[in-house]
Each structure stands twice: as C-alpha cells, then as structure tokens.
C-alpha cells in the first residue's frame, strides 16, 4: 500500500505539493485527478524517491522506496512515454531493467507479448510511435510482476484504440488483485476506469473517496423551470416544500425534482411555464467546479483556505455553486 503523510515539495517559492496525506487502497484502480500543474507528477516522482520531499514522507508497504530491494518487484511505474534510448531495441531496454532487479529473462518476452510488442522486439525505439512507446513503458512497469502499478497520464496523446486498451488493462490488473494508481487531468477518463478517486488542486488534497460516493455526491440532477410569473412559482414551490436555486436567465432549478410532478404542480396552480427541462451536471463539471474552488482559495487567501481536504467539504463547497461563478468572473476582470 502507498501511504503519504504530509508530503510537501517546494520548488523555490512555489509549493508544488502541500501537506498531502492519503492512502492508495489495495486491489482497486485509484484515479489521481487534478488539473495540469496540480502536482500529480511531482507526487508520483516523490513516491519513487526520484524527487526528495521538502517535508513529510511517503512509504510503500511501510518502507521508503529507497529501502526496497529490487523495487521493480513491488511497484512498476510509467512516468514518461518515451523514456528510452532511441538507439536501443525494445527487448534490450527491458532486458537491462530485468537484469538490474534480477528478474528472470523470460519475463522480458512475456512483458513484450503482454503489451503486443513482440513483432517489434528487436527494433530500435527511435522508430516507435507514441502509442508503441507507451506500451513499452507499460511493459517495463509490469516486468517485475509487481503488486502495485503506477501510471502517469497513460492515455495522453493516444488514439482511441490505445485508450481503450489501457483502460481494459488497468481494470484487468485490478481484477488480478493489484493496486493501480493512475493520474489524469480528465474526469471523464477516470469516471470509466477508477474505483477510488483522489483529487488534488494546487498540491492540496480536495477529495479522497470511492468513485460511487463521488458520483452520488456530485452527479447533480435538477429540473429547470422558467416562467413569466416567478412570484407565483416560488410561492407554489414553497408551499410544496421544494428547495430551489436560481438558474440562468431568470430560471429556477429544483434540485432532485421530478419532471412530471413539477409540471403537474405548475398546471394545478395555473402557473405559466416557458421551460420545463431536466438538467444533468456531468462529473466533469463537478470536477472543474471543485478545482476552480481550490484555485479560489489560493487566489483569495481567505478564511476558506483550510476547508479543502476532507471529503465532506466538497458537499459544502457545492452549496456555494451559485456564488462561485460571480467570484470567478470577478477574478477574470482583475486580470
């Protein structure tokens, strides 16, 4: 299991990773989500002891990465797609990696077969496409048959077929009982692969919760109603005990409301409706809203600073939905 405790990385005056603490649960796919520059890659490099933390610590099965003997047998990582010598063949690339950790040579051919690179095993990496380079990187991550695999933005720049292949691979690895930790800046990608979600923004933890829980909290459905008689509508809604929020263009949104029941309600009280429509906020919107808030906390340096972190705060943050937009607009004007 990967555990982070107050992990911090400072580059000069900027905090790339800010007191990050979470655990990557075993045997599932954990999505590590955040906008570009949120600190995902820096965190992953610190897990592998490539970058040294300014503060805090990170352990793998209770030990620091540098204390692992033959680490490729515990944790396999793909950080960059084409981190290979262009003049070396795919097979030789995997061979030296295997030898460094005393992994039997037959694993080299198994890993090549697993990612479908057997036909180009003896070709130099110079001629590889991005997708092939990505497959070779994944082969090196899987070489030691590790319990934990870690991929940094594995679908970046891939064609649809490559994306599908990586999704299925990650699900298969988790089904085999392995721990999969994968970063992405795309919520849509995580929605279809991840079982658990860790969201960071500006190096800080924003959410750490199972995917179904995230969906439950964030897939907001609402019914939008627009009327030339807003006062009557609001009275009717108040009498019926339905909570509502202001929507765009003078409309109202009833969160969790039933479309037909609201239509009947309006008709029964003779309220004229110009619009009655279902609204579904996507997870992508929820994610963008969440990370926009994190940007806000930092830009404003206000009292909300410490609110980020615990999973519960997101639910509270969502209530501020309508407030967040004017704040974002104001920030743009400042720029």
């Amino acid at each position: 299991m990967i555990e982070l405790h107050d992990l911090t990385k400072r580059h000069g005056r900027t905090l790339a990773v800010d007191r990050l603490s979470f655990r990557v649960p075993q045997g599932v796919v954990t999505g590590f989500l955040g906008p570009n520059g949120a600190g995902k890659s820096t965190t992953m490099r610190m897990i592998l002891d490539l970058d040294r933390p300014t503060g805090g610590r990170v352990t793998i099965d209770g030990r620091r990465y540098g204390q692992l003997s033959e680490p490729l047998k515990y944790i396999g990582a793909l950080l960059e797609a084409k981190a290979v010598h262009p003049g070396r063949t795919a097979r030789d690339h995997l061979l030296w990696l295997a030898q460094s950790n005393r992994i039997p040579e037959r694993r080299v051919d198994e890993a090549l077969a697993l990612v479908g690179l057997t036909p180009v095993a003896r070709k130099r990496a110079r001629g590889f496409s991005l997708g092939m380079g990505q497959r070779l990187g994944i082969a090196s991550a899987l070489l030691g048959d590790p319990e934990i695999v870690m991929f940094d933005e594995p679908v970046n720049g891939l064609d649809p077929e490559g994306i599908l292949w990586i999704r299925n691979l990650m699900k298969r690895l988790a089904a085999e009982g392995r721990t999969v930790f994968v970063s992405s800046h795309l919520m849509s990608e995580m929605a279809v692969t991840a079982d658990h979600l860790v969201v960071i923004g500006r190096g800080r933890l924003l959410a750490d919760l199972p995917m179904p829980e995230f969906i439950k909290r964030n897939s907001r459905s609402a019914v939008r109603m627009r009327t030339p008689q807003p006062e009557r509508l609001l009275d009717v809604l108040a009498v019926a005990g339905l909570r509502h929020e202001p929507g765009p263009d003078g409309s109202y949104e009833v969160v969790g409301g039933d479309l037909a029941a609201l239509g009947d309600l309006a008709a029964a009280h003779g309220v004229v409706l110009h619009e009655l429509s279902p609204q579904q906020a996507s997870l992508e919107e929820a994610f963008m809203q969440m990370t926009a808030d994190s940007v806000e906390y930092h830009a404003g340096d206000g009292p909300g600073r410490d609110a980020a972190g615990a999973p519960g705060t997101w639910a509270a943050g969502r209530q501020q939905h309508s407030n967040a937009q004017p704040a974002a607009a104001a920030r743009q004007e400042e720029n």
Partner: peptide, 18 residues
C-alpha cells in the same frame, strides 16, 4: 549523458534507487 537527454535516468533510478 544519454540517460539525461531521454529521461531514462528516472527509469534507471526507479529500478536502482541506490
């Protein structure tokens, strides 16, 4: 030097952290 130009150094150090 070729390890630095390709990013390979990170793959190497992940395999041999000592």
């Amino acid at each position: 030097g070729n390890e630095y130009s390709s990013g390979l150094i990170r793959v190497t150090l992940a395999a041999v952290p000592q």
